[in-house]
Nucleic acid binder design. Structure first.
Lengths: 368, 368
DNA sequence: ATGAAAGCGCTAACAC
DNA sequence: GTGTTAGCGCTTTCAT
């Protein structure tokens, strides 16, 4: 269908309501230029004479014309889309990352495909595969996939990981280990010497890092560390964990994340156990809820929104310079002391002991 | 580039790492069929002989072939994508809707484009416009746009609204008015007769509905209703609102949403004012956090995830039958009584009065 | 600075 | 059932 330059416009019929959805040719003929010029007007405005440009843009405006990204991607090989996969949209931790990432992507004029893998590795793999064809790259947050699977995916699309380290893949890494050390230092400074750690999901890089920080900080000190778990990173699991912690007679607990810590707080309140009078509680992540709890939760703050932004930036950089190597960008943690921590009752005279008791459910400290 | 059937495969070079990204023709020649057959094998498997199908699929698998949705959409006019726009990703209310919507979309084999409008109408408009070209339709949650703007957008793409009513546009409507009536009934039954309402954003359909429910339920009863606000639907605004409510000497408050109610709870706790002993507090939405607060928040539960699912269904239906009219799907609210409400101290002997006092900041009750 | 033409990967008539 | 052909809307040489 070549349109004669009669000023009469032929447009493809829209599928919806009979309205015309103009194509580049409609604009071209109406502005008395070739389709190529219209294309340039949008993609490389510098290449077209100011006068022509203005005319083209005016016609485009009048016709409500917008270039079709799908058609463009067909020739350029770039979609202008970015995929983002998270294990659980209901977790505020990922909401915050998503918020930052989506904002940064928009600034770079990229659209965001979102997917929730429901903490299910099989689904995660399938989602990334499905996305691969229609995005320039994908960001996977706290991936539950094996290293081998990630190496596989890397060949289907450009990958950036958040809170996961894999050879040859760019990543943004939140300093969980450092955050944990700050948490322990804080509790030790307050006089605690029998501390519980409520572990997160097996296979989670963050959890491994937090435990690594724990070991680093406690090494050579006369501290009793009781590791409980693993727990799902949810409020309900925290309620369960609270009872275990009380039974373990610790004077303070550090939770894998805030959701877990909030569950602990709730359960302790229900049981009438005072926080921080009888037990101190430290969370992890500093989700918005942490500051809203009663008592306000002491927690290790992680720059969540920023990490989302940085992940996008890493991806864009990788796309712009495919040759250049991969980068790992670390982001610092910072302890926020609020009202859920205080010196233990009776100061430094708490229980002692170095052996593992049956109720401890201690998990092995080993790289998995 | 026509490929001779020599069994030798020519593939386009991938932009990323020199790996081949196979096209439909690569599969076709390798399987000794035409591209059309490969196309059918994926789009309409019923149209191709079982034996051929198997062969094609096998080759496709071997080559890691996946149809390009962009190319497909160019000919079919359908993208298989759905846009989802929310005012604030950080608000758990929208996270929940998003979670439901994304899950339902995946079941229907559709991808989701996500955008956060940051409660900014201009941005919202631009985001929807930008999406329009690359999605089959978009769902706007709690739109801040004017009716006229929405009517405009309707011509660019298929629209479904969540918590917003506009002529000619399908919508899912959460029963805010009914929920409010339940909340008031509950408080009245407990013996409260001076109740505060902490209003939400102007221009919010939900807020109008909640106030409508308020009027319906209080009409003809000897109740003092003190309307405060409008407040931003955030925790911090709730802390502010708490002080106003106390000054207004109400014995109970209903907040526009849970975030606001949680702020009230927090502020009251900080001031040493007992909940529910001195003031009862009712929230709205039943976000996960509501059940985690201390005391556990009495609130009007709305089926959030389900509403996201239903919105997707409405959209899919509309896409499948473009001719059929629009639908409005209502979803019921249900009061969840937890620990933040109780009879007022001193029973039914509270303050009375019908006039507006200066501190009330009463907003006009009128459709906007 | 602009136009003509080829083609990106796929689907949709229409033949056979 | 399957192949042929002609585009979908855009970009991109290569001319002019």
């Amino acid at each position: 269908m070549t349109v004669s330059a009669t000023g009469f416009i032929l447009c493809g019929m829209d599928r919806r309501n009979g309205n015309p959805t103009p194509s580049i040719r409609d604009v071209a003929s109406r502005a008395n230029v070739s389709p190529a010029t219209v294309s340039r007007a949008f993609a490389e405005p510098g290449l077209v004479r100011a006068e022509t440009l203005q005319r083209v843009l005016a016609v485009a405006e009048e016709l409500h014309y917008r270039p079709s990204r799908a058609a463009r991607s067909l020739t350029t090989g770039k979609t202008g889309n970015i995929g983002l996969v998270v294990p659980d949209l209901g977790n505020p931790f990922f909401s915050a990352i998503l918020k930052g990432g989506q904002a940064r992507a928009r600034e770079a004029d990229h659209a965001v495909f979102l997917a929730d893998s429901e903490e299910n590795p099989r689904l995660e793999l399938e989602l990334v595969r499905a996305m691969a064809r229609q995005v320039d790259g994908v960001i996977i947050c706290s991936s539950r996939l094996s290293e081998a699977q990630l190496q596989q995916l890397r060949r289907d699309t450009t990958l950036v990981l958040l809170n996961r380290r894999v050879r040859g893949v760019s990543a943004v890494l939140l300093d969980s280990a450092g955050g944990m050390r700050q948490a322990i230092k804080h509790l030790v400074a307050l006089g605690h010497n029998r501390i519980g750690f409520l572990g997160g999901p097996d296979g989670s890089w963050s959890n491994r890092e937090r435990r690594r920080g724990l070991r680093l900080e406690t090494r050579g000190k006369s501290l009793d560390i009781v590791e409980l778990g693993p727990f799902a990173p949810h409020f309900e699991a925290g309620q369960h964990a609270a009872d275990l912690a009380v039974a373990a007679e610790v004077t303070a607990v550090v939770a894998f994340n805030d959701l877990l810590a909030l569950g602990v707080l709730s359960r302790l309140a229900d049981r009438g156990i005072g926080v921080p009078d009888e037990i101190s509680v430290v969370g992890f992540d500093d989700i918005p809820m942490a500051g809203m709890a009663t008592p306000h939760l002491t927690t290790v703050a992680l720059p969540l929104e920023q990490s989302g932004r940085v992940a996008i930036e890493l991806l864009l950089e990788q796309l712009a310079h495919p040759g250049s190597g991969t980068h790992e960008q670390g982001l610092p943690a910072q302890l926020i002391v609020r009202a859920s921590t205080a010196p233990p009752r009776g100061g430094r005279s708490g229980l002692r002991g170095t052996r593992t008791e049956p109720w401890q459910e201690t998990t092995a400290i080993a790289e998995r």
